[in-house]
Every structure is written in C-alpha cells, then in structure tokens.
Design a protein around this nucleic acid. Sequence first.
DNA 1: GTGATTGCAAATCTTTTGCACTAAA
DNA 2: TTTAGTGCAAAAGATTTGCAATCAC
Lengths: 153, 153
Amino acid sequence: MTMRKGHFEKMEIMKTENQRPYKQVLDGLRAVGLRPTRQRLALAKLLFEGEDRHVTAEMLHAEAQAASIRVSLATVYNTLHQFTTAGLLREIVVDSQRSYFDTNMSDHHHFFFESTSRLEDIPGDEVVVAKLPDPPAGMSVKRVDVVVRVEAI
Amino acid sequence: MTMRKGHFEKMEIMKTENQRPYKQVLDGLRAVGLRPTRQRLALAKLLFEGEDRHVTAEMLHAEAQAASIRVSLATVYNTLHQFTTAGLLREIVVDSQRSYFDTNMSDHHHFFFESTSRLEDIPGDEVVVAKLPDPPAGMSVKRVDVVVRVEAI
DNA sequence: GTGATTGCAAATCTTTTGCACTAAA
DNA sequence: TTTAGTGCAAAAGATTTGCAATCAC
C-alpha cells in the first residue's frame, strides 16, 4: 500500500516510507491548497494508491459507494476538477460524451478501445512526434495529445 | 460555387464541371445510399460547398436557420452521423462536451484553441509520428489523432 | 403504396449550480 | 468563529428516441 511517485511532490514535509499513506495523502492535499476533508482523502486514496488509472466521475463514484464511502456524485465531479487544477490529475479527451481523468501525470499518450471505451497508457518513449508545425502567431503549445484508436481485427 | 474534391468520390455518374452543384450533391448522396431529401441536400450544400470546416450540430442548425432552411436539430444530428458513417465527414474529439465534425477527410491533424473552442486543420505532412507502439494483440490501429492544444502566450 | 425520413416533444445522460447544512482551521 | 466544503435536488446542455406525419421512389 504505497503511494506512487509523482503525486504530491509539492509536499512541504516529505514523509518517510513507513508512515501511513493516510498521512501522505493528507499532507499532499494540504500542499496543493485543498482542505483534506473526509471525501477528498477517500477519493485520493482510491485514485492514487495502486496502479495508474483512468476514471470517469461515474466510475469513481461507484467505486466509492462500493467501498462504503459516502460521497455525492457532485462532490466527485468537483474533486476531480480540483485535483486536475492542482496538477494531480490530467483530463483525457477521447470520447465526446464523457470525461476521463488519468492519474498518470508523466509524459505519455493513449490507446483508446472504442468498442469498450477503455483507455490504456502508451509510455512517452513509445511515441515520437518528429515534426510539428509552429503554433499560430501569439499562441503557444500547451500540450500535444496522441490518441491511437484501435479496434478488434 | 464548386464542390471540393474528395467528397462523393463514389458517385456512379461523375458530373461535368458546368453542372449545378445541386445535381452533384444529389448524386453524391445517392452514391452513399442516402435518399437525397430536401434536408440532406441543404445540409450537404452548407457543409461541402466552400472551404473545409469544423462544425457542431448546434452550429450547423443555426446556419441552416439563418439560410431559411427548415430542419430540426434532431435531423441535423442524424444527418451528421449518417454522413460520418457514409465517409463524408469525420468526427473530431477535442472537447468532452461537444462533438465536432470535419469536412476535411484527408489525412491531417488539428490545432485546438481551448479558449475559443475553435479547431484548425494541420496538413498531414506537417506532423510526423515517427514511432508508434504495436497495438495490443488482436487489435488494429483504426486512426491516430494528434491534437495540438494551444493557448494565448 | 410502402418504406425511409422528418419533426417534435419527451427522455436520457453527463455535468453544473444554488443553497442550506456541516466541518475544517 | 469563519470560511471552505458537502449533499441534494434542480437546472442546464448535448444528444437520442418514439412515434405520427410526410416524402422519395
């Protein structure tokens, strides 16, 4: 039960390995300026403990309920956006009907399985964008997203 | 007032240059197996005459109204999807809240201006994806979308 | 005619918002 | 205390659907 690296890097007081994830998450939230409320702590633990993941608000809400965490869907939405603004999550746009949030903040891209609406990370070094045009005058590139849409053969 | 190349390529009977776009669009629709109804003809003319464009259902509906074309929003949605299925349009996913349809069917990518929700084509030869991972077993790559998100400096 | 298409309104789905209540600092 | 955060229900926005009326063939 360990926190992955990369999140909560701005923690003022880095905790040692044997401390409880609870405390890490708590301080992590404080570090990004969010009060560590019961709901945020619970959602952060669901999101950041274990493997990297891609969630929708609905999925995370269902998971919280399954874990007996009382939290409203509205709060799940608010929390996902707050975490995104705080730099703990990234929003991935692959489906014009639903928002996905990715806990993997490193430079990487995605496979998208349209038939199942499932996302899978592609490590950054497995995609090389060798040429890009200059952005229009007065504009700067914020992000380059590569989505590889795959289907069953 | 000319049809650009690339659309309705499957036309059984290619019309000569001096024929009316109306007839071209009409036959084009027939060629993809859609009855050339008043609404489809009018929407096709709006979409395929003139420059390449990126439209949402709402935008196209407003444009139709402005041109005194009576068509319901539901029919605009249906038509956009039928044209997409028929290979006349491509759906571009850049905004998880709204669907954009692109009349440019050639191989290309996009700039997306998040502040204005505007799309701009990047010609295919200005983006080079030099390396891509193999798709997971049993899957094939359907499409690779590159979205360059830009913001004001 | 007959089967496809349309329009409208209602339904659905995702997401946001207003506001009284609760909890963190 | 004081202010941020939460839950709920209602609202909003995009899209789809059901079905009778209409149109293309």
